[in-house]
Amino acid sequence: MITAGCDIGSLTAKAVILRDGEEIIGYDIIRVKTNPGASAREALERASEKAGVSNTEIEAIVGTGYGKDSVPFASQTVSEISCHARGAWWSLPSVRTIIDIGGQDSKAIRIDENGNVARYIYNDKCAAGTGRFLEVMAKALDVDLAQMGELAEKSTETIRISNQCVIFAETEVVSLINEGRETCDIIRGLHHAMANRVASLAKSIEVHEEVVMTGGVAKNSGMFSALSEGLGLPVRALPIDPQINGALGAALMAADIVAKK
């Protein structure tokens, strides 16, 4: 049985191909285009190619994410919250809290021992605490977003960034640069500012161990230590690419549909 999950986010589209609801045989992540339908199709095609399966072999496809209603070939659409819970619980059954930080939103989901969603909270109203925060700061610092984690490790001095608002923090970063502060120290300060924002969101639903971080921001190693500090609990990574957790959950949901037939 081959199933697929398609997660259309605000910045990236992800597709996961699953065999028998048990094994990830291919996945891909692409930048979204203006047309979400086309993004979904391309992500799915590329994941299928990697998995070595053809479109006709896929028995069910579940769509999720911000653009889920534009996935043209979906058998069904499921909320992101359910998909993230399902994907994380499948990858790591001991997980109880999932913190997902995407390009334009962040969410915290608490699940029970059976993988059911107990509580969740969502922020898509304020850019602080989303991937956009780091994106803007990387630009202000003139560093590559993907390098921020590595750079933060070189930090020797603690800088406290007092603003959480993206607009105000950007100004603060510019004045820190002008004061001659080290880039790596500023970056570590930014990770903490961002982590504190996300931690306060997560704390409102009570964070239980084990905690995992997913989403594009989870590719930044510096965010793990910052978020662990912010929460006062260790935060770990899933044993999969952190960006595909939602699509994986969707592919698992698709396997459920086929099994029920």
């Binding site: 334009q104 898509d124 109203k125 304020c126 850019a127 956009r132 803007v136 608002c165 993206v166 607009i167």
Partner: peptide, 9 residues
């Protein structure tokens, strides 16, 4: 109209 109050969005 704007969907959110955030300056960035």
């Amino acid at each position: 109209t704007f969907a959110s109050t955030c300056t960035v969005w």
